[in-house]
Write a protein that binds this DNA or RNA. Structure first.
Length: 511
RNA sequence: CGGGGCGUAGCUCAGCUUGGUAGAGCGUCUGGUUUGGGACCAGAAGGUCGCACGUUCAAAUCGUGUCGCCCCGACCA
């Protein structure tokens, strides 16, 4: 039992914070609502970036960078957009500081205030209008990795912070069909990524009008169910129609010699994904990282008493490292500056994933907890008894499964295969949880009972309606997470109004 | 931004009612014995009690103000 982590059943919110603290993923910043993403946490973000970026390239997108500051007037152009974001924008009004009576005071008032981007549809729309002249300029397929700021009043590390990191893709197309296809294509990219890379089973769906992105024609999202039975939106993809093209004048001369407004999309995923990883996979002992996103794949814990034993264990550990990372890496690591106590060896130069040998002057038990809490998928114990037998004890973080292996069993392929197995086990476990906590409701009372007593997703017939959704949210704190796609054209009675409807939705309490 | 709570050592908190030398546990550092799942002994360092003003011979303690944080609501990737 970890003594620095509150068990989930006692206080889930505190458990979440304890896991982050114990794994050193993030820290509070001096500015309320902002966080410092520490190296352990940032490495997970880099892994997410690496794999998503590859998927974006494979679907034809390129990266660029647009500015942090946006003229205030830009935001105001699209009515719904300004309505959605005006309440949470940081506004830059001055360009300097000067000494006043009580210290520094702002000076150099700006003619037009600038806002710190809460999202970049407006400034990108403005630029696109200058870049697009003809149908030959389309499609325009650009992504950017950046930070955004939404002045949140209640914040939680990774899940909701004032500043967060994300990527936002922005595309412009010749036809509505093409833009719609792009929107759904990127939704698929996110869903595949979540499952294949992060072991997060997700449900794809469409947002109701009440929940959609301000300014979008249609919003889609992937939704995941956390261990406490609450849903978390993990990524979104928006079909913006011609809404932004019209207000930013993104128009082109079509094949028919007529001028038309472009059809645009936008789609994004943020550091919130790290929160999803934590809440989906981790346990009362701390963080459990999905192997492909883990910066450290295995931690080797040497066990010894005498100096002679230490030497023998050290020699054997070198052989283990060489078997997993290659003999060249052993030499390369010796040239790198690093802590003497924790030595890292890259097993993959591209992903910078590594294994470590923990030579710190601490007891083996301490080291076990240390790496366990950080979510490292494998721990390898090497003691005098192992050295004598030419073996080691390999422990899986996920389920504490233990096996004794010989040196000859290890290889880079073995490690890759092991990671694949762990990933598959994590995905299966998470999917089982999601399935077991997705229930059908035939009546409003039944849904109310399920959501207040058990949580999870509730699948039901529902005719989307703002007033009804507001009432439901008020009464049982649940919202429509998404309208299910791929539903056969059946009709059923709306759980709220009783009217026949063709839409089935997922309800849940959400983060 | 409304309702409630809290600011004392790196962390968790006691002390405040009834004003009088600044406390505990954990952590940190040093030395020793230890080391196959969170060791033990000995010693040490560490705080203008959130900040300001006031009452008083005397304020962590009482009063006023102010700033910050946490929880609950409204708003949200």
């Amino acid at each position: 039992m970890a003594k620095n982590i509150k068990p989930r059943h006692q206080d889930y919110a505190q458990w979440y914070l304890d896991v982050i603290k114990a794994a050193q993923l993030a820290d509070y910043a001096p500015v309320k609502g902002c966080m410092v993403i520490r190296p352990e946490g940032y490495a997970v973000w880099e892994a997410i970036q690496r794999d998503l970026d590859r998927r974006f390239r494979e679907t034809g997108h390129v990266n660029a960078y647009f500015p942090l500051l946006i003229p205030q007037s830009f935001l105001a152009r699209e009515a719904e957009h300004v309505e959605g974001f005006a309440m949470e924008c940081a506004v830059v009004t001055h360009s300097a500081l000067q000494r006043g009576e009580n210290g520094l005071v702002p000076a150099g008032k700006l003619e037009e205030p600038l806002i710190v981007r809460p999202t970049s549809e407006t400034v990108i729309g403005y630029m696109y209008s200058q870049w697009v002249q003809s149908y030959r300029d389309l499609p325009l397929l650009i992504n950017q990795w950046c930070n955004v700021m939404r002045w949140e009043l209640r914040t939680r590390l990774f899940l909701r912070t004032a500043e967060f990191l994300w990527q936002e893709g922005h595309t412009a197309h010749e036809t509505a069909e093409e833009a719609r296809a792009e929107t759904l294509r990127m939704l698929d990219v996110y869903a595949d990524f979540a499952e294949q890379f992060l072991a997060l089973p997700v449900i794809k769906g469409q947002k109701t009008d009440a929940e959609k992105f301000p300014g979008a024609d249609t919003t889609y999202s992937i939704e995941a169910l956390m261990q406490d039975g609450k849903a978390l939106q993990c990524a979104t993809s928006h079909y913006l129609g011609q809404n932004f093209a019209k207000v930013f004048d993104i128009k082109f001369l079509g094949r028919d010699q007529k001028t038309e407004f472009a059809y645009t999309t936008s789609w994004g995923a943020s550091t919130r994904l790290i929160g999803a990883i934590i809440m989906m996979h981790s346990d009362d002992d701390g963080l459990i990282l999905p192997p492909y996103a883990a910066p450290t794949l295995a931690a080797i814990v040497p066990i010894f008493k005498s100096d002679a034993e230490r030497q023998a264990v050290a020699q054997f550990a070198e052989k283990v490292v060489a078997a997993l990372a290659g003999p060249d890496e052993l030499a390369a690591a010796a040239r790198r500056s690093s802590s003497d106590a924790i030595r890292g060896y890259f097993v993959d130069q591209m992903t910078a994933q590594r294994i470590v040998v923990d030579w710190r002057d601490a007891r083996p038990g301490d080291k076990q907890y240390h790496w366990e809490q950080r979510g490292v998928p494998l721990r390898i114990e090497i003691g005098p008894r192992d050295v004598a037998a030419g073996t080691m004890v390999v422990k899986r973080r996920l389920d504490r499964e233990k096996e004794t292996l010989a040196l000859g069993d290890l290889s880079p392929q073995w490690l890759r295969q092991k990671m694949g197995q762990i990933h598959a086990a994590m995905l299966a476990k998470a999917r089982t949880f999601c399935d077991q906590n997705t229930r059908d409701a035939q009546s409003y009372d039944q849904m109310k009972q399920i959501l207040t007593e058990q949580g999870g997703f509730v699948r039901a017939w529902f005719k989307p309606d703002r007033a009804a959704e507001a009432k439901i949210k008020d009464q049982i704190k649940a919202t429509v997470r998404c309208i299910l796609l791929d539903e056969p054209g059946d009709t059923g009675p709306c759980i709220f109004s009783g009217e026949p409807t063709q839409t089935r939705v997922l309800f849940a309490q959400a983060y």
